[in-house]
Simulated scan of single mutants.
Amino acid sequence: MRPVRFVALGDSLTEGVGDPVADGWRGWAALLAGGLREGAVDFTNLAVSGAQTHDVLERQLPAGLELRPDVVSVLIGVNDTLRRTFDIHAIAARLDKVYAAFTERRTVLLTACLPDPGRMLGLPGALARPLARRQRAVNTVVHALSERYGAVHLHAADEAWLTDRAMWSADRLHPGERGHRQLAVRFHGLLTQTGAAMGVPPSPEPEFAPPPRSASLLWLATAGTAWVVRRCNDLLPQLLRLAADEMRHRARGTSARLDLGAAHAVSAALAALAVAEPPMQADVA
């Protein structure tokens, strides 16, 4: 029996940032790979830190198809929300092409909705709400397309996941080891229900002790600040304008117009793909 081929596409979340091992990052996908089958599993991680949906479509998809995977994960979209070029129409079209390319080959497709970065970073409300609105739009698209293509979909934007600090690394954007293990365990449970996973599930308990608080604070003050600046350098001017617009609407009591506009944009993006969308989640101040 040949090994199960598992290929992971995406950004730093799937690359494994937040779950360090001696030779770099490990992450949820590597942890999941060992539980797909008792015996050999051929795992390839194509995820790259900072990747956006266009990187997955243009670079990772061709490489992934060449590997002819049995299982593929596509977790992407957060970095798109951190760019001034954010375009939900383009994101929906790209994801549709990626999902279609794998499911046409009868590959088991893994997807997930993800928490919004503004909330994870603890940004002030006026700055966080525009990012939350963008992430809800991406999640709505991912939900709709996951249903269309029969993906194994993980709801990873739920409240319990967000509020447990033990799950998260120092940067507040990536899971720590415990969080990566939780993702792997939850995906394994979903795959077991479909018969796609027949191995021993990953352990939810960390192998290594979490870094001390002093190390976390040092990371945030040095490498963490640089990381955020690299991800958001072209967004900040636009985000400030969005925040000002947010405050004007809240002062006038017309914030619902912003949510309605975002919902219309998602509807139009999915209508262009002839996909019916689920309702967008309500805004949480």
Rank of each mutant, 00 (worst) to 15 (best):
L217N: 05
R230C: 05
Q193K: 13
T163D: 13
P211T: 02
R172V: 04
A221E: 04
M198Q: 15
S214P: 02
P237I: 09
T222A: 12
L240S: 13
V229C: 10
A209F: 01
Q182H: 13
P202I: 12
P210K: 04
A184M: 02
L236H: 09
H174I: 14
R178S: 15
T222L: 13
G189C: 09
Q193R: 15
P202T: 10
L191Y: 01
E159C: 03
G176R: 02
L239V: 09
G176E: 02
V185P: 01
R178T: 15
A197H: 07
N233F: 08
V228H: 02
R213A: 14
W161G: 00
A223D: 07
D234M: 03
G179Q: 09
L183G: 00
W219R: 07
M167P: 00
V200S: 12
P201E: 06
N233K: 13
R181G: 04
W227Q: 14
A209H: 04
S214N: 04
R231V: 11
A184S: 02
V185C: 12
S203G: 13
E205S: 08
A215N: 06
G179A: 11
P212W: 03
H188G: 02
G189N: 09
E177A: 05
E177W: 10
S216H: 11
A166V: 13
F187S: 00
L183P: 00
E207S: 11
R165P: 04
V200F: 06
L218W: 13
A170G: 15
H188C: 08
R172W: 09
P202L: 08
T225G: 12
R230F: 06
A184D: 03
T222M: 10
A209M: 02
G199S: 10
E205D: 12
R172A: 14
C232V: 14
G179S: 11
A196E: 11
P211Q: 03
W227P: 00
A170K: 08
R165C: 07
D234S: 12
V228K: 07
R186F: 04
S216T: 04
R230I: 05
A170V: 12
R172F: 11
D171V: 09
L191F: 01
T192W: 06
L190H: 03
V229G: 01
L236F: 14
P212L: 03
P175H: 10
A215I: 04
A184Y: 01
P212D: 04
C232Y: 03
A223M: 10
L173E: 01
L239Y: 06
L191G: 02
V228E: 01
D164Q: 07
F208V: 08
W227R: 15
L173T: 10
L220C: 08
E159K: 14
Q238I: 05
L217I: 10
G224C: 07
G179T: 06
A209I: 01
L183M: 15
